[in-house]
Design a protein around this nucleic acid. Structure first.
Lengths: 334, 334
DNA sequence: CTGAGGCATGGAACCGGTTCCCTTCAAGCC
DNA sequence: GGCTTGAAGGGAACCGGTTCCATGCCTCAG
């Protein structure tokens, strides 16, 4: 692999001039620039990123911290972030860190300070005070997604409102016995957004005077999790709910599958609404609150770029809209 | 952020000694080592990765190229790779590149040569001759997953055998009209593994003298793709198949959902077998050929480490086993 | 007593870029 | 004609580490 010294020698100029010619900073004559460029072309020269990073102080890379990779929301988000960063010429360095794991400490203590990232995108992670302090030492701008952090820029939807609107949709259809499906009651592992969605559901129930009928069938925010929670909720024939609000579409779809299995007609006997507009939602005719994780990812990149270009700029929090998409999994209560 | 010069000054030694004390290479007295270590501790010193990389020639990072992030197999794989790399102290730099996109050229021309990766993991990508040449210039070892590349180390399952065994399972149950569900007929976008699975299905059909009954309901290798293909295949009431082999579990589950929708009893009237053992397979009681993408990911890391430690070592191809998991989506033909 | 060899350390070169600063030269202006 | 100004480009410092080499000391064998 050739270095800039090779290019300079071949073009008959100094390293300094070669660097200026290729980067476009400083004065270089038209003719010299062309000579350097073709020399670089001939040697198929590509600048060494570490050397560049060391000299300029910018690494052209962004660290991305994710609590999980195998759920739809996070995978879509990651895809959006990746596309955005790649388009801007930044590399994405991925850390998949389960909440509260030992690796998490190592990440904050050693890994993040070692690479000087130009920026950090943290997804669904509520950094502890100590971790936040470590992040600030690194001095790279942070954008969090779905975590409502105060000090940093942030992207999210209004989880509270989304769940409230979904629940109101069911209430408007005449439903009274509405169960919230999925989500862990344990606060430590409960994703922040899930907690807010549960609160939104509770608020809607309370506003309709249905406080005492509110019920949470806990479970993992996944299809099997929703399935199991639904089986439990539907098990009692005497007091069967007439509608589900899923903590996410995966849980809601689990509920749909469970209902079908138990011979309960979705819509006619049981309305189900989710939150996400998952790629499978349409297939299951699921009514849901649409959010667009890919868009959230690319918005996060946009916010990050803004802060990288001007570190003095104040952090910006944006809340993306989510809208009710009515399909045929919801119908009037009987 | 402090540098090694700060640490050296605080410990009262030279940069050289400080470096040796911290890295453990070369002679340093016990007492000096301790002094340097506590100086580093007090300054919360962390070595600058670019400087280290420039000096040593090793970047402690691995490039990972993936064709998609939103499918279960790839997400699981990525999780396995990520865990493996993190445990070994390597960073994962992610590139999500759609087959044949413009970004792909940029990746091979500029991005990969710029960063000097210590290794590259390419998933489901068949590099062109020109791309392979670029990869070799970079001189970092490559491990491919699921792509059967000759020059490089590789990890995969035997896709051909997996589909053959799945199909034989159905034939043994007395099925004759077996449709292969999902997978794109277009060779350019058809993932290599999907093609091999189709071939395995065809071979099993041929071996049982069922060549003329073999039928491929094409579609995306996803749940909606399988759903649509199944609806088409089940549409003709006169010639309804008695069994599906899904190109993957997602397609197979799409088939199960389609059958339920159409009022066709899975197992009793229609057997369905998939390939993957997807996280949702159990929920749908799907009989399937189990493969473990996480394991494939960590094995890929192991192979990569082997080649990084000894570049002269010959590339190693390993084929991981896949086994038939019989659940209740398959039954004797009527 | 001398020389060899292991240990401990410091100085300086080096990795491959970028950028500051200085020199040169030509054009423009008073 | 002398001075200012700006373009063009070279030398060298610098980013923050690692490592080669030289030096001094101590021990031990001959």
């Amino acid at each position: 692999m050739s270095t800039i010294a090779d290019v300079a020698a071949r073009a008959g100029v100094s390293k300094a001039t070669a660097s200026r010619a290729l980067s476009g900073h400083g004065y270089v004559s038209e003719e010299t620039r062309d000579r350097v460029r073709s020399a670089a072309e001939e040697l198929s020269y590509v600048a060494h990123s570490s050397a560049m990073s060391l000299a300029t102080g910018r690494s052209l890379s962004v660290g991305v911290i994710m609590p999980s990779l195998d759920r739809w929301f996070f995978a879509e988000l990651l895809a959006g972030v990746q596309e955005g960063l790649f388009a801007e010429g930044y590399d994405l360095v991925l850390y998949g860190i389960r909440e509260g794991s030992a690796e998490r400490a190592r990440l904050f203590e050693r890994i993040l300070p070692r690479r000087r990232f130009d920026g950090i995108i943290a997804v669904g992670i509520q950094p502890s005070a100590h971790e936040l302090e470590r992040l600030l030492r690194v001095e790279s701008p942070v954008v969090s997604i779905g975590a409502y952090s105060e000090g940093t820029s942030a992207v999210s939807i209004d989880d509270f409102a989304a769940a409230r609107i979904a629940t109101e949709h069911l209430i408007d259809l005449g439903h009274r016995d509405i169960v919230f499906l999925g989500g862990q009651p344990d606060a430590a592992t409960h994703a922040v957004g899930d907690r807010r969605r549960l609160d939104g559901y509770l608020a809607a129930m309370a506003a309709a005077g249905l406080d005492d009928r509110a019920q949470h069938a806990a479970g993992a925010p996944t299809m099997p999790g929703g399935y199991e929670a639904a089986v439990r909720a539907l098990g009692d024939r005497r007091q069967r709910p007439s509608a589900f609000v899923g903590v996410c579409d995966e849980a809601a779809i689990g509920g749909v599958v469970a209902a079908r299995r138990l011979g309960i007609a979705v819509a006619a006997e049981l309305s189900v609404v989710g939150i996400d507009d998952h790629q499978h939602a349409e297939m299951f005719s699921l009514t849901t609150m649409r959010q667009q994780p890919r868009l959230q990812g690319s918005e996060a990149v946009r916010l990050l770029r803004a802060r990288m270009d001007d570190p003095a700029a104040p952090p910006e929090q944006i809340v993306l809209p989510s809208e009710l998409v009515v399909r045929s999994s919801t119908a009037n209560a009987r």
